[in-house]
Write a protein that binds this DNA or RNA. Sequence first.
DNA 1: GTGCTTGCAAACAGTTTGCAGATAG
DNA 2: CTATCTGCAAACTGTTTGCAAGCAC
Lengths: 147, 147
Amino acid sequence: MTTDTESRYQQLVARLKGSDHRLTPQRMALLRIIASGEGHPSATGLYEQIKTQFPTTSLATVYKTLSLLKELGEVLELGFSNDDNRYDGNRPYPHPHLICVRCHNIMDPQVSLVDDLTQEVAELTGYQVISHRLDFYGVCPACRRSP
Amino acid sequence: MTTDTESRYQQLVARLKGSDHRLTPQRMALLRIIASGEGHPSATGLYEQIKTQFPTTSLATVYKTLSLLKELGEVLELGFSNDDNRYDGNRPYPHPHLICVRCHNIMDPQVSLVDDLTQEVAELTGYQVISHRLDFYGVCPACRRSP
DNA sequence: GTGCTTGCAAACAGTTTGCAGATAG
DNA sequence: CTATCTGCAAACTGTTTGCAAGCAC
């Protein structure tokens, strides 16, 4: 576990305890995985990973824990109408995603102009802009090489 | 029906005929609605409107027709994991949306920088960027005034 | 007349919920 | 000890599918 992963894990543990929630083994296992920030796992993916440590874990518990973390603002949920939702517990604030339509990998590109966009929209429309969602779809370099 | 609506309707009719698809009354009714470009209707919303003219219409037919128009590239589908999907048959290419979290109205803001963003992401990551999805969430001026 | 299209109902998939038993604090 | 959490199974919701009857061309 990297230092970042460890500190994010401790942060999440503190957040749960500080909001009067219990720290169960199943929750700890989930926190460990999402703190690592590797990929953008689905609920089922998390479930499969946790099951290797706690074989009796249920998918419902994974969903309930994710829901709790969403309420606490510690997890970003990427909802898809076609596919299962993905979760990011490392950067729980809106940020762009880049999705390969071939291998379905999801990465976080660095994009500089997003805040300018939000500002532009707010000024233009009179809306109070709270949040956003920005996904790019494309073909990643690896998939371009092997068609 | 405005001139724009009428011409878009004719365009859609031509597209169906040109691709060897049949022009049924149910399809004509749906084309008329989406050609008008008013709002971002859901499948159920379209269904309710069409039913006033053709009471025996089924929701499945609405879905099948929307699916066909998607394949032809004549309709943009906005998928939501929480809510029902919305459809835009007037601007069937990716463009930003602004969604009021209070009244759920959806509008199309004019945003100038989006193509720059796409370019930036492509150059930065080596991806071949095909498409994107950009939604802003906020509170519209009307809802801000009446809390 | 032919075969695409419709309408119905059942199937589907991901997510949520209710509840009885288990357990963290 | 007790309120929260878990695991199971059933419920839910929007969308898709299979099929027999209908109808556009």
